[in-house]
């Protein structure tokens, strides 16, 4: 059996994968915003992040795609799962509640924001750069992280440390009150 793909079919397959990724992203975002159960909303968020990781791969950044999987799917989604487990949202009460005025208002606001942002972006005339000074490969990203952006790189780790300490302090304070 001959499994080789003709060179003409490669762009078509590429395009098909890209459209599939967009559909996955939109489906995930819809699930994340509309699902009645919070666990399903988190699952939708994960699906959406997977689609976005694929889109990053199409933008010539495999490193950022990998980081998207590691940080968002691996850390942020798990953190939200912990929040659901620790706070036990009352699913039946939440599901029974109708959005009321918030529903149409949310659709209107979301549609307006999307329309204005997309319209502005598509109407504007973007200037392509005359010359690119590097390829944007993983090696280039590493070099600039440790030269031009080394200070910010260190500061981000301090921000993360403070965030961990701060979240411990905030989550602990309620506990003291419950005990006395």
């Amino acid at each position: 059996m001959n499994l080789s793909i003709s060179p003409e079919a490669v762009p078509l397959i590429r395009e098909g994968i890209f459209v599939g990724l967009i559909i996955v992203t939109v489906f995930g975002a819809l699930l994340a915003t509309l699902a009645k159960r919070m666990t399903r909303a988190v699952l939708g968020l994960v699906v959406c992040f997977l689609g976005i990781a694929g889109i990053y791969y199409f933008l010539n950044s495999p490193f950022v795609a990998l980081m998207q999987l590691l940080i968002y799917v691996g850390a942020v989604a798990v953190t939200i799962c912990f929040a659901i487990m620790l706070a036990e949202p009352d699913e039946r009460k939440l599901a029974a509640k109708t959005p009321g005025m918030a529903g149409p208002l949310a659709v209107l606001l979301g549609a307006t924001v999307t329309w204005v942002l997309a319209g502005t972006a598509i109407k504007a005339e973007w200037m392509a750069p005359a010359v690119k000074i590097n390829e944007g490969s993983v090696k280039d990203v590493g070099v600039s992280l440790l030269t031009t952006y080394s200070m910010v790189f260190e500061l981000v780790s301090i921000v993360l440390l403070i965030a961990i300490l701060g979240s411990l302090v905030i989550a602990r304070s309620g506990r003291d009150k419950a005990e006395c």
């Binding site: 968002y72 993360l160 961990i164 905030i170 309620g174 506990r175």
Partner: peptide, 21 residues
């Protein structure tokens, strides 16, 4: 992404504190 991770951690602790109260 790093800021989003920090934000998620702090938001989680706020949710837990609010739930306790």
């Amino acid at each position: 992404m790093a800021i989003a991770a920090a934000e998620a951690a702090i938001a989680m602790s706020i949710v837990v504190a609010v739930y306790r109260n």
